[in-house]
Structures are given as C-alpha cells and as structure tokens.
Design a protein around this nucleic acid. Structure first.
Lengths: 239, 239
DNA sequence: TAATCATTAATTGTTAACAATAATTAAATA
DNA sequence: TATTTAATTATTGTTAACAATTAATGATTA
C-alpha cells in the first residue's frame, strides 16, 4: 500500500529533519501540536506506533530530553516538557537575544537571490487568508529561517530552531487575529527594506520591535486561557 | 571497600550534577578534559567501566548528543563532539549575548549575602597561585554561577551552563598566563563594584569587556596550537 | 615487496525477555 | 456505603542475546 507523503512547509524550511526517524516523528508531533505539553510518552505505545522495540524509542526520547522537548521522571517515564506560560516569555526573551545576532551577518552579506526569496515569501503571506493560520505561521517561520540558516554560528542557529519549535508547539492550536496578521506582514516588509539597504542598526531595531510585538500578542493570548500565576511582562531588551 | 568521594568546586557550583549517573560521569569526564574532543565513546567499554549494559550507556550518550556534547555517526557510534577552534569563537559570542541578559536581573535584585559570597570568591582567587589553574578556573566559574543561577529564565541558565562546560572542556588542559590571571581578578573586582552599586549599564559593559578579553586570550591560545583554518575574529557586540 | 582480496574480530544498533516500580482494579473490612 | 487492603495489570528501566555493519588481520596474487 503506497502512500503519498505530505510535506509541510516547516519541514521544507528545515526546522525539523524530514527523515522518518523516531526522533523526527516525535519532534514533528510536538511541533505541530499533535502531542501537547504534559502528554505522557509511553514507550510501549510509541514502539508499536513506529514499528520498533522500546529501546530505540527511549533513545529518541533521551535525545529530545537533552534538547528540552521531553522531560523524564524517575520510574515514571517521559512526558512532553511542561511549557508553562512563563516559558513563552522566556522563549521570546531568548529570541530577542538570538535573532539580532543572527540577522547582523545576513544584513551585511546577502545576495539578490536571498532578497528575492524573502520578497517571494512576503508575497505568499499577503496572498494567504488570515484564517489559514497554519500556513501563515509556516511562511513566517520560513522568512526568519531564510535570514538565519546561513550563519557561521550553527550552534546558535540550532538553538534558534529549538526555541522556534517550542513557540510553534505552544500556539499550534491557537488562531491569529486579523490585526496581528496584517501587523506581522507590515513588520516583515519594513524589516526587509532595511536589510536590503544593508542597514544593520535599523534592521536590528525593526527585528526587535517585530519580536516584541509578536511576543506581547502571544503572551496575551496564552494568558487569556491559562490561569494567572506569577506573570512577568516581556522584557524589552533595548530602550 | 568504602571510598571517600572527591567533589570538585565545579561540581559544588552545580555545573554538573554530582549524582553518579552514567550521564553525569561522562559529562564530567568531558568537562574535565579526561575525554577530549573527537574521542570515541565505545559503548561496550563504557558499559564495563560503569558496571551496566550498553543500553543505558547509549541513552546517556543520546541525551548528551541532544545537549551538544556528543555526536553520533550512523553505524560508527558516538564521539565527543568536535570542538573546532571556531567553536570557541561561537561559544564566546553566545556568552556575550547570554551573560549580560542574565546579569541584569542579579544587578537589580541581590542580597548583601550575595555580594559577600562574591567577595569571598574573589578573595580565594587572589589567594590562589596562578599555577593552580584548575582551581582558578573553578573559582572563576563559581563567581559567574553565583551571578546567574537564580535567574527566572532557567532555560537560559541551563544554556549558559552548557556553553561554559564546552569552554571548560576546551581549555581544561591549558595553563593560564600570569597576566591573564591578574587581569581576570581585576575584571571581576570592577564588575562586582558596579553590581553592588546596582549600576546595570556599567556592570553589563564591564561584563562584556571581561568576556571579550577572556575570549581573545583563549582564542589566541588555541590558535597557537591548532592549525589555522578559516578563522574569524571574535565579534565585539557593543562598540 | 606491494597491493588486493577474503576471513576474522570488534562494535554497532536492535530485539526480546525480565525484574522493579507504579497504577489500577477487585476484595475485604468497618 | 465508604475506605482501606490485597491482587492484578501495566509500564518502566535494565540485561543479555543477536543480526548488521564496520574495522582489522592475514592470506593470496602480481
């Protein structure tokens, strides 16, 4: 029984390897919200699902533990890591550190083809309905991925990818407001204009503003649903 | 046969858990330079060494892979991750991003006991011979650990710890010059003076300068021994 | 002698069985 | 009936055996 494999944009973008390893499949399920924060990861079930024995599953889970996506508890097995809603603040603050660092290189060294590709992504964004928030998110990710993927500090790139995946996991099942949609498109456009000029400072400022506005929006979204525990506002890293 | 367990300062400081799990023991061996970059990690040997079978070893190695300390190659097993000397540049640039972020919180919210502890560490540093570079490095680590350990963004703290361990692994077997030793002590002192005043900006500037001077020193050290491949100078993140 | 090939040994990655622990269900008691 | 207690089931974490792959050794040929 031959099946046609569906490849999502986020996979094309390279955020998760598109091999069929147990590791990648579990990570994909987490990133796409099939497995949500706190879900038990029962080795026997996963082994059956992926047609293997429990040890390769355990190894994949251990690797994911090392990457922060899974948490083990002694004699109680593995769960998808608890993403408290303070986690979202922490992730956005991390992105505020990482992304300007990664962008600087791109702003200084990019080809016309890079810019064309980015314009192409923005074009697709504008052609996308706000309701189709899965596709919009994928394009958003693809835009940033295009900016950072070529950086010399590949460990930093890997880190960005992980944080981005956690973010994706946290709002995989939430819709995007029409305002946020149009704001995001506009922010990408201004960002791109600074990048194509090679204006490092301005581009980084625009990027920080973009991350912050996205962060404020999503934290508010999550706060609405989640119970209010010790909330701290997102820290603006410049002015 | 009862044995007295030696606990190093870096363990006390909490950089590596002091449990006797296979994971922690391997990580300690990497951090202390017993296992060096590129070394093969033969499961059967490690299993014998730690008195277990190969599967728990494999799981520990997979977790360490997730954390970036170990690299697997298909059907060729695991090795300690290749720390190229560009890795050191990447690590220092990452630390330049992370540490000011982590420090800000501490500068704003610290107790007199915190300051006393930091002064205590500096005291011990000045009382240490430059030749005893292992102890000096442990005190250096303990100083920074004291600054960051309490931060609300524990994922960022965990990340700092990993980067610091990689650094430790890379110069575990290298001596420290007398100049670097005295410079480092002085830098810690000026940093502490700004922190105790609650001067966020000045403290962060002093910290950045401290990281950069350390980075430049160690990159030069490693460059001397290593063959010169595509080297890039350490990027100063402010001015 | 040098180079190629086949054989052997070592190591990896996986499977399946097993003890230890935790969770669940059923039985017994107040 | 409610609540504890015992028995059962499920799951975890580990061990030991096994096929697949790679590395090492020795024999064969030019």
């Amino acid at each position: 029984m031959e099946t046609v494999k569906l490849v999502t944009i986020s996979q094309q973008a390279g955020l998760v390897a598109d091999d069929q390893s147990i590791y990648s499949q579990i990570l994909n399920d987490i990133a796409q919200g099939q497995l949500v924060s706190g879900d038990r990861l029962v080795t026997t079930q996963l082994a059956k699902k992926y047609g293997s024995s429990i040890n390769p599953v355990r190894e994949a889970l251990k690797q994911l533990e090392g990457e922060g996506f899974v948490a083990f508890q002694k004699n109680s097995g593995a769960r998808v890591a608890r993403f408290a809603f303070s986690t979202m603040r922490d992730v956005f603050e991390m992105l505020q550190l990482l992304e300007p660092y990664l962008l600087k290189e791109f702003t200084q060294n990019h080809t016309p083809e890079d810019i064309a590709e980015l314009e192409n992504i923005i074009q697709k964004m504008t052609a996308t309905q706000a309701q189709d928030f899965t596709r919009f998110r994928e394009l958003d990710t693809a835009f940033h991925w295009q900016l950072y993927r070529g950086h010399y500090n590949q460990e930093a790139v890997k880190l960005w990818r992980r944080k981005r995946l956690i973010l994706q996991a946290m709002h995989a099942n939430l819709p995007i407001s029409h305002k946020r949609y149009s704001d995001a498109v506009a922010e990408h456009q201004t960002l791109l204009s600074f990048i194509s000029k090679g204006a490092v400072e301005e581009a980084n400022e625009a990027l920080l503003a973009h991350i912050k506005s996205g962060g404020d929006y999503w934290i508010a979204q999550v706060t609405e649903t989640a119970s209010s525990s010790g909330y701290r506002p997102l820290q603006g890293l410049t002015g």
